[in-house]
Structures are given as structure tokens and as C-alpha cells.
């Protein structure tokens, strides 16, 4: 089992690298190694547009997938995801505030604060006697998201000139990505690594909080750390690429079927798969759908998947 797991990880790394190469070549203006050297314009597209965009798409995919995996492990249920429990909405509201009032300055910080506050609020609402039941978690996530989107609508209504910018950004996409965003995105591996250090604790907390205490896990601290780190990852992802849904839901779920529930393997597998998934979603939309916001695509695939999960849970 340990061997199949490492094979899966290696295979995912291979697929990721190949996908990145493909994604750089593919696009409305397709390019080859020859044209890169021959045409200065092609070099410019490669260096200023494609490369940062590919890197950021991969990292944002990683961030969302790892945040989703951490939340699913923490809440002991495979339906948690930063988008569904309101983290992304909080991040979006924070980012919008920065766009409206500060012309986008400090957007990552605002997004992170918004994401963290939303996450802890939902967690507090959903918690009943030390447990976080699925139903209340989803419902409080929905309720808080509604409230936040009301604030968001109000901001947009009063936003005036920046309305278009907010709208486009909210739909989630990478059309505007620059090397500055890559710089922000380098925080993502740090967050992922922080979560990975607690992979074994996450395995144990999925047995239940009391059992985890019996086995020597400082549960309260672990929960705060995981929530904080997931909100950090989701906040950065949102501040760069807007609200992209369902990557954090689908990836851990599928990877769990392939590599099993052990977070020491699941976390890296989900991170790689999340990167691959979002990279391809972005590459395909910008190549074939005229740079439509990628959030539309992921939600089109993600929402039916969520419904499928809900149905199979009801049967079980």
C-alpha cells in the first residue's frame, strides 16, 4: 500500500510537469520552442503572460485542495470545503472591501482576514456540545454565505466605477495574473507545509475529538491551527483568483478513493491533483472559451459532483 501510494505521488508529479508544459504551449496564440527564440513577441507572451499564469493556477489549485482536505479531516466529513462553508465568501468580502476603499491595496491581507473571520464564525455556530455535525455545518455555511453576499451586493451597488472589476474578479479567473501574484502565491507552499506537519494528527482527529485527546493530540490547538491555515490558504487563493469553487471539495474526495484516508499521503496527492485540475480548467477555458472566468467551469462540474455526494450519503 505504501508502494502504490508513492507510485501515485510520482505519477501525479509527472502529470503536473507535463500539464504545465502543455499549458504554456497551448492558448489562443500557440507557440513552439522555435518561435520562442525567433519572435520577441512570443517570448513576451511566454514570460509575462503564460508562465506566471500557469504557476499561479497550479498554486491556487494546491491551496484550495489542501484547504479542502484539511477541513474535511477536521470536520470529519467529506463534504466540507472552503467554498461551501463560507471561507471563500469571507475572503471575497474582505478583498472587495480593499478594492472599493483602498483601490485593491492589501487585498491578500483583507481576503485572509475575511476568510478567517468567516471560518471561525461558521465553526462556532455549527458546534454543538463539542461536535460539528454535517447538517449544521453546511447550513450555517449557507446562512453565513448569504449574509456575506448581501454585504457584497451592497458594496457592489455602492461601488460605482470599480463594479466591473469586482464582478469579474468574483467570478474567479486568472486573466490578470502577473509576477506580483506569483510572489503572493509563494506563501501557498508555506501554508501547505504547515498543514502537512500535522498530517498524523489529522488522521487521529478523524477518529473523534475525545479519542484524539486520549491519543495525545492537543485538539483545541490543532483545530485552531488547521482552521487558521486553511483560511490562510483559501484567503490567498481568493485574493489572487477570486472565488473558485469546488476544487477543494472534489480533489480530496477523489484522491481519498485512490490513495486512502491517510493524510500523510492524501495531502500531497490532493495538492498535486488540485494543481493539475485547476491548471487544466484554466488552460481549456482560455484556449477554447475566450478566457471565460474559470470559476464558472469549476462550478459547472463541481455542483453536480456535490449533489452526487449528497445523494450517495443519503443512501448510506
Amino acid at each position: 500500500m505504501r508502494r502504490t501510494a508513492s507510485i501515485t505521488i510520482l505519477a501525479l508529479i509527472g502529470i503536473l510537469l507535463a500539464s504545465m508544459a502543455c499549458a504554456i504551449i497551448m492558448g489562443p496564440a500557440s507557440m513552439s520552442l522555435g518561435s520562442l527564440i525567433a519572435l520577441p513577441n512570443a517570448w513576451k507572451i511566454f514570460w509575462d503572460v503564460r508562465l506566471p499564469r500557469v504557476i499561479v493556477a497550479v498554486l491556487v489549485g494546491c491551496a484550495l485542495a489542501v484547504a479542502g482536505t484539511a477541513m474535511q479531516g477536521l470536520f470529519r466529513n467529506s463534504m466540507a470545503d472552503p467554498y461551501i462553508i463560507g471561507t471563500s465568501s469571507g475572503g471575497a468580502l474582505g478583498a472587495t472591501l480593499s478594492i472599493v476603499f483602498f483601490a485593491g491595496t492589501g487585498r491578500p491581507v483583507f481576503a485572509f482576514i475575511g476568510a478567517t473571520v468567516a471560518t471561525f464564525t461558521v465553526y462556532t455556530i455549527a458546534r454543538q456540545g463539542g461536535k460539528v455535525p454535517v447538517e449544521t455545518l453546511l447550513l450555517s455555511g449557507v446562512a453565513l454565505s448569504m449574509l456575506l453576499s448581501a454585504f457584497l451586493s451592497f458594496l457592489m451597488y455602492t461601488a460605482g466605477r470599480s463594479l466591473h472589476q469586482i464582478m469579474f474578479w468574483l467570478m474567479g479567473g486568472f486573466w490578470n495574473v502577473s509576477w506580483d501574484d506569483v510572489l503572493i502565491a509563494t506563501l501557498i507552499p508555506i501554508g501547505c507545509l504547515a498543514i502537512y506537519f500535522y498530517a498524523r494528527d489529522m488522521n487521529i482527529i478523524s477518529l473523534g475529538e475525545e479519542d484524539a485527546i486520549h491519543l495525545g493530540v492537543n485538539v483545541e490547538r490543532l483545530k485552531q491551527l488547521l482552521l487558521f491555515a486553511s483560511a490562510f490558504l483559501a484567503g490567498i487563493a481568493v485574493s489572487i483568483a477570486g472565488a473558485i469553487g469546488f476544487i477543494g471539495l472534489i480533489t480530496p474526495h477523489v484522491m481519498r478513493l485512490i490513495v486512502g484516508p491517510d493524510h500523510r499521503i492524501l495531502l500531497p496527492a490532493a495538492a498535486l491533483a488540485g494543481g493539475i485540475l485547476l491548471l487544466w480548467s484554466d488552460t481549456l477555458t482560455r484556449t477554447f472559451a475566450g478566457d471565460m472566468p474559470v470559476g464558472i467551469i469549476t462550478s459547472c462540474f463541481g455542483a453536480p459532483f456535490f449533489i452526487y455526494l449528497l445523494r450517495s450519503r443519503m443512501k448510506a
Binding site: 470529519r76 478523524s206 486520549h214 491517510d262
Partner: peptide, 14 residues
């Protein structure tokens, strides 16, 4: 100290 509880439910297939 180790504790043996009455049982446990777990959502993942360990």
C-alpha cells in the same frame, strides 16, 4: 493513560 471508549464511528476507511 489509555482509554477504551464504548465504540467509535469514523467516516474514513482506515
Amino acid at each position: 493513560i489509555a482509554v477504551v471508549p464504548q465504540g467509535f464511528s469514523i467516516s474514513f476507511d482506515y
